[in-house]
């Protein structure tokens, strides 16, 4: 479509409204040059274009907005809330961690013992002491009534009871103690013993441990604890024939054929064998028996370190729990 005298007004209006392309604009301008009488018409239409006045809106500052200031909850409130949340979460975590640690934390000494036994350390003197303390603590409740039963005291087993301030296995102790010392000394010298364990497998024995004389005084468990730690068998026989210290469970477990071994020694009393204690407990379980041939009683205790073998405990960092059982059998009919 081209411009002509019939439609020029529409083209002129589109021209001043800048709605035409370059080619059409050129066409309009050429048309006007060819028709000068219409140039005035185009000029009149151009005058209808309204130029914008220099008006300024004087309240622009009131229209400006700040994202932060217009928040329903200003950003600083969110920051405070986040900080409080972090603090509360941290406190709760620490509190729960503390509780869990207390619940799962085994006696640290027990775990040390497990490690030492697993590593076959020969020098558990420090750990031995701590274990003794732990064992004492663990066994206190259990053994609390043991002396009060009167059985051991009446049966004259003073060797088991260490007087406060005295050396449990001092040379002037009773014969049972002397035998204990002898047995320990045998353990120290593998050549003189049939113990299949090398000397290095045995941690410090009761006698050695008590050389420091730093363990808290305790009755029967004092020996028992040391026996448990040593893992050795101390079949003892009272020279008087009145009592024996039997330790069936401490027969060294690594040998399969020794697992079923009864540790009851043939006491001088010799009146019947006390019920044999089967040594099918894991290596973490120890026991000690005291046979009173005079009164025909067998007393003792069992200790078991629960929650698996020591190596697992070390690997998994499992916590241990010591379970101690005290018993006394009356063999009288």
């Amino acid at each position: 479509m081209t411009i002509n005298r019939n439609n020029y007004e529409e083209y002129f209006l589109l021209y001043i409204d800048r709605e035409l392309g370059d080619a059409e604009r050129q066409m309009v301008e050429d048309f006007v040059r060819r028709h000068p009488d219409l140039e005035k018409e185009l000029a009149a239409l151009r005058q209808t274009v309204v130029l914008p006045p220099d008006l300024v809106f004087e309240h622009k500052e009131a229209l400006l907005r700040d994202e932060k200031e217009r928040r329903l909850f200003p950003l600083y409130l969110w920051r405070i809330a986040a900080a409080l949340l972090i603090v509360l979460a941290g406190g709760w975590f620490l509190m729960m961690a503390g509780k869990t640690g207390k619940q799962d934390q085994p006696p640290a000494d027990s775990l040390k013992i497990a490690v030492k036994k697993d590593a076959k350390h020969v020098k558990p003197s420090t750990e031995l002491k701590t274990e003794n303390r732990e064992s004492s603590a663990s066994a206190k409740k259990t053994y609390a009534d043991f002396p009060r039963s009167g059985t051991l005291r009446k049966t004259g087993v003073p060797v088991i009871r260490q007087q406060p301030g005295s050396d449990l296995l001092s040379p002037d102790s009773n014969p049972v103690q002397q035998k204990l010392i002898a047995a320990k000394q045998n353990h120290r010298n593998p050549a003189e013993t049939t113990n299949p364990h090398p000397a290095g497998d045995f941690p410090q024995t009761a006698a050695t441990a008590n050389q420091d004389n730093r363990q808290p005084s305790m009755d029967l468990p004092e020996i028992a604890r040391n026996e448990m730690l040593s893992g050795t068998t101390i079949p003892q026989s009272d020279q008087t024939g009145k009592s024996e210290i039997l330790n069936p469970s401490t027969i060294n477990p690594p040998s399969p054929d020794s697992d079923e071994r009864s540790a009851f020694s043939k006491g001088s009393g010799g009146k019947g064998q006390p019920p044999s204690t089967i040594n099918d407990q894991p290596s973490t379980a120890q026991s000690i028996l005291v046979f009173d041939s005079k009164n025909k009683t067998v007393s003792g205790f069992f200790k078991k370190l629960l929650s698996g073998p020591p190596e697992d405990a070390v690997a998994d960092n499992h916590r241990k729990r010591v379970s101690v059982s005290v018993f006394q059998f009356n063999l009288k009919k």
Binding site: P53, F57, K60
Partner: peptide
Amino acid sequence: MTAEDYNDCVKQYADGLYRFMLKS
């Protein structure tokens, strides 16, 4: 549109809009 975009609109178009409204 962000707040910055909005403020740009204020700076660029407030005068023109005001002219348009005032003339209208």
